[in-house]
Design a protein around this nucleic acid. Structure first.
Length: 204
DNA sequence: ACTACGATTAAA
DNA sequence: TTAATCGTAGTC
């Protein structure tokens, strides 16, 4: 089942935690890509110096952060990469969840092509592990770009998040977020969540 | 117009 | 540890 608007219309902290284990679905060129979300981070504009929208900051790039829950916020970073977030809370509140790592479930051949222009069977173990174990790696594997910003993950039939049919119990680790050393006290917030021992987590 | 920087990654 | 690489935003 596709996740509802209500699921996302809560604090980014709650959503970031509960989204672990859920499944990202993307249909492109007649192919279906699926992956289990195994790592996430919460960003909350009101109180978080690491959030692009901290202090009510407002620019064209970050505008989706202020949009309604369930839309995508994809930004371009370091001149070559994209990062994919899902907006949480009501319209006007700048909160979102960064999807940092995914475990491939379906369409791994397509992901292998997108990442390495090669067949999965030709990849060494290092490359296999690095298909989707980072925010920009999974964006490449799933073909997500800023064109996807503003996409409504509730309405779209080709890009959304659904429940995991496996009813597995997941042990979730809470840790500091990655790559925000400039964010003063916010850098120590335990707003990163990941599945314990999952090999696709970017950094344990 | 000019400049500095970044929620990253891959290679060394 | 560092280079790669450029859109974005702030400054001039």
């Amino acid at each position: 089942m596709k996740l509802s608007r209500e699921f996302f219309e809560r604090s980014a902290l709650i959503v970031a935690k509960e989204i672990i284990g859920k499944v990202l679905v993307r249909k492109v060129n007649g192919k279906i890509l699926k992956g289990k979300i195994v790592e996430s981070e919460a960003y909350i504009g009101d109180i978080d110096k690491a959030c692009h929208a901290y202090g009510g900051r407002r620019t064209p790039r970050i505008e989706p952060l202020y949009g309604k829950s369930g839309i995508a916020y994809v930004y371009f970073i370091y001149g070559m990469y994209h990062c994919f977030n899902i907006i949480t809370e009501k319209e006007g509140k700048a909160e979102g969840v960064l999807i940092r790592a995914i475990e491939p479930i379906q369409g791994i051949e397509e992901m292998s092509q997108n990442r390495y222009k090669d067949k999965y069977e030709n990849l060494n173990n290092y490359k296999r592990k690095n298909l989707t174990n980072g925010p920009s790696k999974l964006a490449i594997a799933f073909g997500i770009t800023k064109e996807d910003s503003w996409n409504d993950m509730i309405e779209n039939e080709k890009f959304y998040i659904e429940d995991n049919n496996e009813n597995e119990q997941i042990y979730i680790i809470e840790d500091k977020r990655i790559g925000i050393d400039y964010a003063e006290e916010a850098k120590d917030f335990l707003w990163r969540f990941y599945e314990k021992n999952n090999p696709y987590v970017s950094k344990s």
